[in-house]
Design a protein around this nucleic acid. Structure first.
Lengths: 288, 288
DNA sequence: TAGTGGTCTAGACCACGTG
DNA sequence: ACGTGGTCTAGACCACTAT
């Protein structure tokens, strides 16, 4: 392909060879004046067919940055290189890097702090924590309750869990059961399944010793970061087990929350079934 | 005040006189070359104190556009002027208008369509409809059920409704009660309170005759557009009334959804209390 | 004082939709 | 062919934070 090569794709822009990227770099070359270097050799190539799978430059940059996040080149809580640095690394303008980071910030993968830099988000921050804990007390501030682990064992995935985790029935998974307590009231009964491959060495002890959000542990100890989740919510009646563990009468209405959590690349890594007592708490949701 | 006047604030940029805007227009003047006009008279003013309430230009433009949306200058479904037109109207660059519209699009007030223009969103579109209807059937596609209006009357706001609507107890409100039916199953019992001042002339007949989402009626007939909403969700037991209307046993678990909806300027205009039967449907929510 | 992200501009070209 | 939004660049200046 006769594309205008070196200027943009020098630093291993992905797919620079395949159909997607070839036509995308056609952007602006300064009209005249400007520095002596960098003049494209043959503007004739501009009329090449607009390849069917067009991907903007900033999307490619975004994918590159995401890959570095995923590989752990920049760890949660750390600062990523400045826009200028990234621009020169990828051989694009600062504005293009900015647009890529804008989207990553909108997806909460990174957070910008004016005057300081751009930082990889982490489940240790309050902001992130309450994105995944939507239970709010009727009175008082949202807070993290105490977790009592009932069980943590390895077993083979039942069919439905396997389907949700996109693995095969019988593949290894870790099952956790726990109760969350707020102000001395048992409020949440969770049953959690995790991808076995990602959580070798996870034990009840580790869970019990850990202070703070479970996702922070997963991120720090197992290198698995929850990026987004999808929930299905229903009202159900408490069965005997739930009633006992949550100290409510059998048949009491409980909020059932079935969550599937995803990490980079939209790969599911967790299924979580929660039963919430909603007499003194409610599930907060904003439609916008 | 000795601000650089005519160039930016000519077309009635709001607050151009007050503290906020004076310092904000300081942006870029082209280094040299460029057209003969427009050279700022006194670059000395650049060192004026950075006013405590700094508001970027694009935020001011965004406020202006929002005002035009609110006033009905551009109605739901219509196209707003092109970026170039708005840029020349407000005497700013296209890029600044673009950033303003970017935010409005992110808030779903407008939608961009490449090659066509930017359009005011409307509750007639599918995309918007399902932002406010989160109930999804276990089997089959999401769809809009049939609405049976039980009641629609004017009355004085009880204390709690008044508090949520930010009005005084006893102020006029419209109360609606209705049942939503999906596939011949009564699924949702709604009790709705609307700001009386905004909904004069709303009757049970109008509601019954209207085919389509209620919010589309409100938008088309009453000029009140729901922009965002906040919901508090719990599990409750069906009382006799709900049990009868929804054809479930007394005490059955139901999803209770208390919604407050807001229009422009974050003014609350609706309180809605819904009871959902979640045996064949679930409430869908995405955390990200 | 230096470095970072944030704002603003101006101009070029591209992809898309419609005549 | 034309107008729309979308991408990309280059350069200037501003606001914030740290040293």
């Amino acid at each position: 392909m006769s594309s205008l090569p070196t200027s943009l794709t020098g630093a291993s822009v992905p797919g620079a060879q395949d159909s997607g990227a070839a036509t995308s770099g056609a952007g602006a070359q300064p009209s005249s004046s400007s520095p002596p270097t960098h003049q494209p050799p043959a503007p004739a190539a501009a009329h090449s067919v607009p390849s069917p799978t067009f991907s903007p430059l900033y999307q490619q940059i975004k994918a590159l940055i995401t890959r570095s996040l995923q590989s752990g080149e920049w760890k949660p809580g750390e600062m990523i290189p400045s826009e200028m640095e990234l621009a020169s690394r990828y051989k694009v303008s600062q504005g293009t890097v900015r647009k890529a980071i804008d989207e990553l910030a909108a997806e909460n993968l990174v957070a910008r702090r004016q005057g300081k830099g751009t930082f990889v988000t982490t489940h240790h921050e309050d902001v992130v924590k309450f994105r995944f804990l939507r239970l709010v007390p009727d009175e008082g501030e949202p807070h993290y309750g105490a977790s009592r682990v009932l069980e943590c064992k390895r077993l083979r995935a039942p069919a439905e869990i396997a389907r949700l985790l996109d693995i095969r029935t019988g593949d290894s998974v870790v099952q956790i059961r726990r109760v969350l307590t707020f102000s001395d009231e048992s409020t949440v009964l969770d049953e959690i399944w995790l991808l076995g491959a990602n959580f070798r060495g996870l034990t009840a002890e580790k869970l019990t010793e850990w202070k703070g959000p479970m996702y922070a542990l997963f991120e720090a100890e197992f290198g698995t970061r929850m990026i987004r989740a999808s929930e299905k919510i229903r009202a159900v009646a408490a069965d005997e087990t739930a009633a006992t563990l949550l100290s409510v009468p059998v048949g009491s209405p409980l909020l059932s929350v079935e969550r599937v959590s995803y990490t980079y690349g939209d790969r599911p890594v967790e299924v979580r079934r929660g039963l919430y007592v909603t007499t003194r708490h409610y599930y907060q949701n904003d439609l916008s």
